[in-house]
Simulated scan of single mutants.
Amino acid sequence: MATEDLIERILAAGDEPSASVIDALHELLDDTAIETSATPKSVAEAARLLGLSPHTLRYYEQEGLVRPARNASGYREYSAFDLRRLIFLTRMRLSGMTMQDLKRYIALVEQGPSTVPERRRIMLDQRDRIVRQIRELTLALETTEYKIRVYDGHPEG
């Protein structure tokens, strides 16, 4: 399932995404949606699958966040692992995680299991930022809804 399809399913689910949508998200980040045995993807194929530009994929590589292998001709080949990491990176960027925090997080991942407590702390901090963003966006939505009611001649309702 392409990430854009998943995003559309989640957004269409409204305030309470169904268990199947959440399961689909977990599946996408797990080995089952992007098969570990799948053939590696070229930059163009990976970009299309993830809904990103090839430039973005190269940028993440330049920043050391993903390291696709190269084939005998020197072309990038994105493995299932690379694709799952890119999905994670794009979701975190969308949620406002800084590149500095992402680099720190990926460096910790690459250091192994001993860094789990620090990685967990980073994710807890990110969750707090996301919750705050949601509250701020909810306030912005309420303000917008109020203005729409005013323009419809019903400010009190």
Rank of each mutant, 00 (worst) to 15 (best):
S20W: 01
S20C: 00
V21G: 00
I22F: 10
D23C: 05
D23G: 12
D23E: 15
D23K: 10
L25I: 06
H26N: 13
H26A: 14
E27Y: 07
L28Q: 15
L28H: 14
L28M: 15
D30R: 02
T32A: 02
A33M: 07
A33H: 05
I34T: 06
I34A: 02
E35V: 11
A38G: 01
A38F: 07
P40R: 05
K41I: 02
V43Q: 09
E45R: 08
A46R: 08
A46G: 07
A46I: 11
A47N: 00
R48Q: 14
L49A: 09
L49E: 12
L50P: 11
G51K: 00
G51L: 01
L52G: 06
S53K: 07
P54K: 01
H55F: 09
T56G: 03
T56R: 03
T56Y: 05
Y59P: 07
E61W: 06
Q62D: 15
Q62H: 12
E63Y: 10
G64P: 02
G64F: 01
G64R: 02
L65M: 02
V66R: 07
V66H: 07
R67D: 12
P68N: 08
A69T: 03
R70G: 00
N71H: 04
A72H: 00
A72Y: 04
Y75C: 05
R76S: 03
E77K: 04
A80W: 00
A80Y: 11
F81R: 15
D82Y: 08
L83H: 00
L83F: 07
R84K: 06
R84Q: 03
L86C: 06
I87L: 14
I87C: 14
F88R: 12
F88Q: 10
L89M: 00
L89N: 10
L89Q: 08
R91E: 08
M92H: 08
R93P: 09
L94Q: 15
S95Y: 05
G96M: 10
G96I: 06
T98Y: 05
Q100Y: 09
Q100V: 13
D101G: 00
D101V: 04
D101C: 10
K103R: 09
R104M: 08
Y105H: 05
Y105D: 04
I106E: 06
A107L: 08
A107S: 08
L108T: 12
L108P: 13
V109P: 08
V109F: 01
E110K: 03
E110G: 02
Q111F: 06
P113H: 11
T115A: 06
V116A: 13
V116N: 09
P117D: 11
P117K: 04
P117L: 01
P117I: 07
E118L: 12
E118D: 10
R121P: 00
I122F: 01
M123G: 04
L124F: 12
L124Q: 14
L124W: 12
Q126S: 09
Q126E: 13
D128H: 09
D128I: 00
D128T: 14
D128F: 05
R129N: 14
I130F: 02
I130H: 05
I134E: 13
R135P: 10
R135Q: 13
E136K: 12
E136Y: 00
L137K: 13
L137I: 02
L137V: 12
T138K: 15
L139C: 12
A140G: 10
A140T: 10
L141F: 13
E142W: 01
T143N: 12
T143C: 05
T143G: 10
T144M: 13
T144Y: 12
Y146D: 11
Y146S: 13
I148P: 03
